[in-house]
Amino acid sequence: MNEAEIIDKLQQGNETAFRVLVENYRNMVVNTCFGLLHNTEDAEDVAQDVFIEVFRSVDKFRADSKISTWLYRIAVNRSLNFIRDNKKRKWFQPFDDVVKSKKEKLNQLPSAHAENPESELENSQRAQMLHDAIDSLPENQRVAFTLNKYEDMAYKDISEVMNLSVSSVESLIHRAKKNLQKKLYLCYKKKCI
């Protein structure tokens, strides 16, 4: 089933077409969400909402753009909304929930039974540092950088997803890398790891 057929059948409410769409694009959508959220469970949760939105609004889809571009756009918007909602929720979160989420994070760290616990621990600390650095980037830079790095997307494709010119995307990624470098250097000086 090609893209046009999938869309055509989806617009008729065909369940098989929806299944094909989900199976074909789930890794791409989850990966994009993960790049922005850095948590597998949250990424899958948001990705599910992405496909539900697609199913509901397939009538609005314009045939002149690719399904992937549309999916990327929804995935990015949904992930950014999730981050914003989470920030708001943190203000009203009871202390117990904060402790619980910290515990969950600790549980995600490699256990002593892992094959090489030391290197696993170092990797997870390094990942945490990198995620913090990426999260501190301005939103546009973060999105452009994530699409480029996690999805290996070309600047042109990113420009279509973000509705920007190619040169703007190029500049965003350049600035994102510079900012990341600064933050990683500070961390290296402070001996974060």
Partner: peptide, 15 residues
């Protein structure tokens, strides 16, 4: 780390 994180395992019951 970016390379290691590129393809998170998606649950088989996703659909």
């Amino acid at each position: 780390i970016l390379e290691l994180e590129k393809s998170p395992e998606v649950t088989p019951f996703f659909y």
